[in-house]
Design a protein around this nucleic acid. Sequence first.
DNA 1: GTACTAAGTAATAATTATTATTATTTAACT
DNA 2: AGTTAAATAATAATAATTATTACTTAGTAC
Lengths: 133, 133
Amino acid sequence: MIKKEAKDIKYTNQRIEILDFLRKFDGHPTVEDVYEGVRKKLTRISKATVYKNLRFLAEKGLIKEVNIKGVSRFEANLVPHHHIICIGCGSITDYESEDLTDYSLKVAGDIENFEVESTDTNFYGICKDCKEE
Amino acid sequence: MIKKEAKDIKYTNQRIEILDFLRKFDGHPTVEDVYEGVRKKLTRISKATVYKNLRFLAEKGLIKEVNIKGVSRFEANLVPHHHIICIGCGSITDYESEDLTDYSLKVAGDIENFEVESTDTNFYGICKDCKEE
DNA sequence: GTACTAAGTAATAATTATTATTATTTAACT
DNA sequence: AGTTAAATAATAATAATTATTACTTAGTAC
């Protein structure tokens, strides 16, 4: 169970379960995935609540929203990382490279009239499974 | 007017206008933007046709789909580039850095079980206008 | 140039995703 | 324990996207 790690946030059962679900989920669940997941414990939760809280938690910086192919997905992995996206099956895999993050942030220093807070890189291509077909 | 640059594609008026619109548009128009734009010339075009052709053209590699904050956007700029995204107002600006692209592709070489075809980096932060508020 | 055919389009319906509304409930603070 | 601002459930409303189908057209073969 989640601790009340950040104040100025009202820790409702719904929020705790959503956050808990995201932290245990190995991947990048959609709103629907999250809804189905938390419903196992909170059977009466409303989908609007899931939407609201996902946006709320993302706003508060406790989770991140990733958008792939027009679908919103969420993740609780806050360590800076990149995404490997298969253009065949749409699978998304995290990829950590501190070097790349550092390099990107260095480049970001050259950008004028804009204050960069974070960066991430997407790698598009074909995964092993799709290639074998 | 667009030439018939790629074969195996049926160049209908609708596709030509959509492609033409994207190439002239300075930015990252949504489906709605494209629809409103091409409607000035093809007044009877259907929105479903716009959807279908945007996906088709993206599939064929003539345009690219970018996804920001859950909204699909399209661009005809095929030169590898990155995106500067303001988390305040949602504005998107292209940013070219061959160095960063090269570095990313070098990193991509280390990824196992995946064949990277392209990469791009997102820079998230606050634009000048939003900061002044 | 005319006919043929596979593919594309328009119009609309259907589906899916997201946000708004409102009465009720609850977490956090006295 | 009582108070209150904020959150929730349920539902309605809206927006985004895809599917269906009858009609039209671009490209090719004659």
